[in-house]
Amino acid sequence: MRKLILLTGLLVLSVLAYSQTPYKYVIIPTQFPDFANGLNPYGLSSSIQNELNAKSIENTFQAELSNDEFCDVLTVNLIKINNMFKNKLKVELKDCRNRVVWSQEGTGRSKDFQKGYAEAIAEAFKDLNQLPVNPNASPQVAVAPAPTPAQQVEQAAPEAAPAPTVQAQATNPQALYKPANLFYNYSYFIDLVDADAGRKQLILLNGELLGYQNLQTIGTLSPSGLGDVYTLEWTTAAGETVRGLANLTANELKISLPKGDQQEVITLQKY
């Protein structure tokens, strides 16, 4: 009887577990300025889409994302590898924190840029059959099915053993962070967050790559009274605080900081 009761308790137990689900889809940029200017240079965007479609991997050209899906997708990055005789490149898939979760190099034998880069992209993608697992996926509750009548116990035992308890695994706050207002360039991925009294804070998502901590607040914008112009307190990677100016529009954040006798200008675009 005790075994039957314990079995019944285990069957109705809800277990909290993290789903091992892959990323939902891939975002393909339509511009690759390191290769050439303009839209879809050398057919790079089209070649990437062709390879992903051939593997039934969901993809879309670069577009605005809602906050809910921001960390559920990957973005393609291409790195040009200089080679005198061949078209060589590296394909990277990056997550919402600008971390590379997959990368592979490819080489094109054709001397024609468009055909050669298409060959290189095909070679790089040849072993990618599905997207990597997303560690930022939300936890799901898996509920065991209810016992059938044949498994039910007609008469309870005098002293039923206590049902085992399951503790939810602590989650990593950084892994669940979803940017709300992202600005970026080739170095910085910054979330612009509203604070009190009209101020705004700059939270750095890829801090470890730049000598900071991930999700560190590295700047505070305060209204100057001059429209889109803000005064700025900026924290350097060495922990020093410097004061500068920032110009904020709907699509661009331009930061000006003193650097010796000159000014350092950091320009970030709205994601």
Results as ranks from 00 to 15, higher is better:
Phe70Arg: 15
Arg99Gln: 15
Gln104Met: 04
Val12Pro: 07
Cys96Met: 08
Val100Lys: 11
Val12His: 05
Ala36Met: 01
Met84His: 07
Val91Gly: 00
Gly38Trp: 01
Ser14Leu: 07
Asp34Ser: 13
Ile28Phe: 06
Asn53Gln: 14
Asn67Phe: 02
Ile57Trp: 01
Gly9Cys: 14
Val91Glu: 00
Met84Ile: 04
Gln49Gly: 14
Leu11Tyr: 06
Thr60Ser: 14
Leu4Pro: 06
Pro22Lys: 09
Glu92Leu: 13
Gln31Gly: 10
Asn83Lys: 01
Asn50Tyr: 10
Glu69Gln: 13
Gly38Lys: 01
Leu89Asp: 04
Lys86Trp: 03
Ile79Tyr: 10
Lys24Ser: 15
Ile27Tyr: 03
Leu11Asn: 06
Ile28Cys: 08
Thr30Ile: 13
Lys86Ile: 04
Ile81Phe: 00
Gln104Ala: 14
Leu10His: 05
Leu93Tyr: 10
Leu52Asn: 01
Asp34Cys: 06
Trp102Cys: 08
Ser66Pro: 02
Lys94Met: 12
Asp34Gln: 14
Asn77Lys: 14
Asn83Tyr: 01
Val100Met: 07
Pro33Thr: 11
Tyr25His: 10
Pro22Val: 03
Asn37Val: 04
Ser19Cys: 06
Lys90Val: 13
Tyr25Gln: 14
Pro41Met: 02
Ile81Val: 07
Leu93Asp: 14
Phe61Cys: 05
Phe61Ala: 11
Asn37Cys: 04
Arg99Phe: 04
Ala36Trp: 01
Leu44Gly: 00
Arg97Ala: 12
Phe85His: 11
Asn59Lys: 01
Pro41Trp: 01
Val100Trp: 09
Glu64Thr: 11
Val26Ala: 12
Thr21Met: 08
Met84Phe: 06
Ser47Trp: 00
Leu6Tyr: 11
Phe70Trp: 07
Val91Tyr: 01
Gln49Phe: 05
Arg97His: 15
Pro22His: 11
Leu65Cys: 06
Val91Asp: 00
Trp102Leu: 12
Gln62Val: 11
Arg99Gly: 05
Asp68Leu: 08
Thr21Glu: 08
Glu69Ala: 11
Lys55Phe: 08
Val91Ala: 02
Phe85Thr: 12
Glu105Ser: 13
Glu64Ser: 13
Gln31Asp: 10
Asp95Asn: 15
